[in-house]
Design a protein around this nucleic acid. Structure first.
Length: 492
RNA sequence: CGGGAAGUGGCGCAGGCCGGUAGCGCAUCUGGUUUGGGACCAGGGGGUCGCAGGUUCGAAUCCUGUCUUCCCGACCA
């Protein structure tokens, strides 16, 4: 069949692409570097979005929306930020097309319709938002501002991969303004905790919280905090970032407020975001050679019921039982679909729902009815077991919880098993090439050394873990003194 | 931006060197038999061969140009 997936061991990249496309999450589009997110993939994103949105609101944030276009003069106001993104910006220069006088039926850009000032299609929204905040903030009484927006952004990447790096992607970006540094720093770490909570407890993906080195820091930030996850090939994937922006943007956009003592002060800022890239992380971390493996808590569909029958009589008897089971499951908040379509046989359906990563499958046939049981198959381990129809709702609900926990534990065991300490350069290179994963090693703290390591091995410092212990050592490359180990890895 | 591959029914591909008006698998439609791990039989529908020029009596095939996508690299918060 054309539905076969390239095994992980054979070609990891192709395996990933196959999962995305054959699992019906997304497709390539006619636009270079841009994908079509299909209904199944979008349902997954919606579930993730809904959970995050509630978490943001529970921590006092509100949603708003800012323009897609940013006037170039505003964009370049914060120099460091602008330079960081300059190489991958899409620019609007004209506002009208006209028919081509030399080529009937074709359109050309109307040279008469050149914009006075070019518009940058947002790669991120700090500039337009801080320009707006200037008008919102006069007094300490106007602070804090805790705003989030769900939006699309465009980054003209040279090379793209479905979900992991696309020219256009969906994300949320929080932008907050505070009266004090301490409050802004607290916000930065609070949102990092929210991300870690979400990714670990909903996506079942263990992460390491840390802070980025200067080289990897967000353009315009004082500090970039991150959560780093490990994929099944041992590579790292940055799953979310939270930036402490200091007063950088306030100064660039002249945003001041009067404090209680009537002194004018610059506002302190944070920004934080996660994107559809998380879907890529989810897929790469949990799935197998049979298809997607989705965590029950965010799976678009948690349970599918497949009937097996000969003739209308059996079908009617099965339908009756299924109706009862469905009601029971739905009452417990479980999403369930009864696939009694007659255009595919049971075996085909089994394979199809495994491809799509539906956590639990229930098969019910005539011989099950006689014994009042069903066959329950779990996607994560592919184990099958019979279960009594009585109390099936609770049974399945518990099973979903068990699957959620198992997927997390499995990923965590793999992750922990692939964090290794290296104490010599040879050891470092050997681990990177042969064992893969994260390598905990001493670093002398200079950007130059970090850069050299990257050039020689393609490994970057993923983060300095927040709970890092201090210990004296010598840098893996330079031999200079070091006070702590940092995490290196090759990354997506 | 460098290197490679590819654009042919909805999807995946063959045909191309050697030009003669398009074929296979899957999907789809109709009828029937089936249904506990990707069913089978019979019949049917669907394609200006990426686009634009050129050579030729004749181009999917040869030539020139062009567009797009994918993979590898460089680049990447």
């Amino acid at each position: 069949m054309s539905k076969e997936i390239t095994p992980r061991a054979q070609d990891y990249s192709q395996w990933y692409n196959d999962l995305i496309i054959k699992g019906s999450l997304a497709d390539h589009s006619a636009v270079r570097g841009c994908m079509v997110i299909k209904p199944y993939g979008f349902a997954l994103w919606e579930n993730m979005r809904d959970v995050l949105d509630k978490m943001f609101k529970d921590t006092g944030h509100q949603n708003a929306y800012f323009p897609l276009f940013i006037p170039k003069s505003l964009f370049e106001a914060k120099k460091k930020n602008a330079e960081g993104f300059a190489k991958e910006c899409a620019i609007v220069t004209h506002y009208r097309l006209k028919t081509d006088p030399n080529n009937k039926g074709k359109l050309i850009v109307d040279p008469e319709a050149k914009l006075e000032e070019e518009l940058v299609v947002r790669p991120t929204s700090e500039a337009i938002i801080w320009n707006t905040y200037k008008g919102w903030i006069q007094s300490y009484r106007d602070l804090p501002i805790l705003v989030n927006q769900w939006a699309n952004v465009v980054r003209w990447e040279m090379r793209t991969r479905l979900f992991l790096r696309t020219a256009e992607f969906l994300w949320q970006e929080g932008h907050t303004a505070h009266a004090t540094k301490a409050e802004a720093v607290e916000e930065t770490t609070k949102m990092l905790d929210v991300y870690a909570d979400f990714v670990e407890n909903w996506m079942a993906l263990p992460v390491i919280k840390g802070v980025k080195t200067a080289n990897e820091r967000f353009a315009g930030a004082e500090d970039t905090y991150c959560i780093e996850a490990m994929m099944q090939d041992g590579k790292a994937l940055q799953a979310g970032t939270s930036h402490f922006l200091g007063q950088n943007f306030a100064k660039a956009f002249d945003v001041k407020f009067s404090d209680k003592n009537n002194n004018l002060e610059y506002v302190w800022a944070t920004s934080w975001g996660v994107s559809t890239r998380l879907i890529g992380a989810l897929v790469m971390a949990h799935s197998d050679d049979q298809g997607l493996v989705l965590p029950p808590k965010i799976a678009p569909l948690q349970v599918v019921i497949v009937p097996i029958f000969k003739g209308d009589e059996q079908k009617a008897a099965i339908d009756a039982k299924v109706t009862v089971m469905m009601a029971e499951l739905k009452a417990l908040g479980v999403s369930v679909k009864y696939d009694d379509s007659d255009n595919a046989r049971p075996g085909w359906k089994f394979a199809e729902y495994e491809m799509k990563g539906v956590p639990v499958r229930i098969a019910i046939g005539a011989r099950d009815l006689e014994q009042n049981i069903v066959e329950v198959a779990r996607r994560d381990t592919k184990e099958k077991a019979n279960a009594s129809i009585d109390g099936i709702g609770l049974h399945v609900k518990n099973l979903l919880d068990e699957i959620q926990a198992n997927i997390f534990n499995r990923a965590k065991a793999f992750r922990d098993d692939h964090i290794t300490e290296a104490n010599t350069w040879d050891e470092f290179v050997d681990l990177l090439d042969n064992k893969t994963g994260f390598i905990s090693a001493h670093w002398d703290g200079t950007p130059e050394t970090e850069e050299k390591i990257k050039e020689q091995t393609k490994a970057t410092i993923r983060c300095i873990p927040l709970d890092n212990k201090q210990e004296a050592g010598t840098c893996i490359l330079s031999g200079n003194p070091s006070t702590q180990r940092v995490l290196f890895a090759r990354a997506y």
